[in-house]
């Protein structure tokens, strides 16, 4: 029911590459969204707890370490356990196309790879939130 889109942007695991997420955070802020940034080296539990407490529309996880096939399924499972499956999960980073397809089949709503233009990130977030409807 509230009109400002809330997004949490997280870095999970042993991955110190945060230049990309900071740019994404600014891009979403400049599109008028509230963006909560978790900082580096979070666990899936911390990220899901934060997403629940912050009542976000979207949980975006950036992974450049190659651990995406471990981390995303864990995050999806935790969201389910916390009765928070309505939170839209987005992935960002670098991964093979077949992994992206596999994760989408498991419930990640979209994977935004490294060459995604900023406008397209904003548009994707807006579209997915609109499709979900008011919360």
């Amino acid at each position: 029911m509230s009109n400002i889109i809330r997004v949490i942007i997280a870095k999970v695991g042993l991955d110190g590459h945060d230049r990309g997420v900071k740019i994404v955070a600014r891009t979403l802020r400049d599109a008028g969204m509230d963006v909560i940034y978790t900082g580096l080296h979070r666990t899936p539990e911390e990220v899901v707890d934060a997403a629940v407490q912050e009542d976000v529309d979207v949980l975006g996880i950036s992974i450049l370490s190659g651990a995406h096939m471990t981390i995303f399924p864990r995050v999806l499972k935790l969201l389910k356990e916390r009765d928070a499956e309505d939170i839209i999960v987005l992935g960002g980073g670098v991964m093979p196309d077949e992994d992206a397809a596999a994760l989408k089949a498991q419930g990640v709503k979209e994977i935004l790879l490294q060459d995604t233009p900023p406008e397209s990130i904003v548009a994707t977030v807006r579209r997915l939130v609109a499709e979900r409807g008011p919360k």
């Binding site: 400002i4 979403l28 599109a31 008028g32 509230d34 900082g39 407490q53």
Partner: peptide
């Protein structure tokens, strides 16, 4: 833009997930 980047949570670390703690930005 009216948007924001809320970064205070970064410092909270693992304590934010404790059942007796609630952190909101």
């Amino acid at each position: 833009s009216g948007g924001s980047i809320l970064g205070d949570r970064i410092r909270m670390g693992e304590i934010a997930g404790h059942p007796s703690v609630f952190v909101r930005s």
